[in-house]
């Protein structure tokens, strides 16, 4: 569905390549997480997915369309929507519902349909009651939900979250992650989640770790989080529960397992406590 083959990219005047030979396939309905330290190239990769940036070398194909084909740019952007990092810098107009309608307006969708789309997009992110509000009066988390609604109103098949949680507080972050997984599960949207928070990738089908413009590791969250030392060497971390799991295994208190979060850990600890 999305096929990236051996792309390279450098920003103007930069000495190092931001992307240096990245190849990646993303399948329909997948939940892919891309993690990496600051400057690892993960955000640059995100912007390749809907032709905001074009590779210097190699190619990106979205539903069979090459992103370097200018004729196809709009069609590609209809298929792949991006939610960006700073909620303030992606809201265009002064009223929430108008902003959500911005995408469909650009596509020339008839008025009655825009109103329907805006309604269901706001409903999907739980912000219907704020339809008439001014965006600048909302919290960061709420603004980011509006930004998601703005992308949903275009009805893309693929949703890319480009560090969309980085500037939010824990509540806002949780809301964005929940919306992303729900859209993936219930609406079958393909989700590409780019983040630095390791806790946020435990729900993904596949994790891609980037470093120095290259893909450094790839696998299921379980596979990736077995390599704590490798992750730390890449300026990353493992989730707290994975760290606890590894400590318990080292102490001989627990067998090797795939525990990633609190409830899974509780499931494993309970029988231990009952036995003793």
């Amino acid at each position: 569905m999305i096929s990236i083959s051996n792309i390279e990219y450098s920003y103007d005047g930069a000495l190092k390549k931001a992307l240096d030979g990245v190849s990646l396939e993303i399948g329909e309905g997948e939940f892919v997480a891309i993690v990496g330290h600051n400057g690892s190239g993960k955000s640059t990769l995100a912007k390749m997915l809907n032709a905001l940036l074009l590779p210097d070398k190699g190619s990106v194909s979205v539903f069979g369309m090459d992103t370097s084909d200018e004729e196809k740019t709009l069609d590609i952007r209809k298929k792949v929507g991006i939610v960006f990092q700073n909620p303030d810098n992606q809201i265009v107009t002064t009223v929430v519902e108008e902003d959500v309608g911005f995408g469909p307006e650009n596509l020339g969708v008839p008025t009655e349909q825009i109103i329907e789309r805006v309604h269901s997009a706001l409903e999907a992110v739980g912000m219907l009651e704020y339809a008439k509000h001014a965006p600048h009066m909302l919290s960061g988390g709420q603004k980011q939900r509006i930004a998601i609604a703005g992308v949903l109103a275009i009805d893309p098949d693929v949703l890319v979250f480009d560090e969309a949680t980085a500037m939010l507080d824990p509540l806002g972050r949780k809301a964005v992650i929940e919306i992303a997984s729900r859209l993936n599960r219930e609406k079958g949207k393909t989700v590409v989640m780019i983040t630095q928070y390791m806790e946020e990738v435990t729900a993904a089908d596949r994790v891609i770790v980037m470093s120095g413009g290259k893909i450094a590791m790839e696998g299921t969250p379980e596979q990736i989080f077995r390599k704590g030392d490798e992750l730390r060497a890449l300026r990353l971390d493992v989730p707290v529960m994975v760290e606890l799991r590894d400590m318990l295994v080292r102490e001989g208190l627990m067998k090797e397992s795939n525990v990633l979060d609190v409830s899974q850990m509780a499931e494993v600890i309970c029988p231990l406590l009952l036995k003793n």
Partner: peptide, 10 residues
């Protein structure tokens, strides 16, 4: 530490 990667935070 807001907005930094895990190493940056540490």
């Amino acid at each position: 530490m807001a907005g930094l990667d895990p190493s940056g935070r540490r």
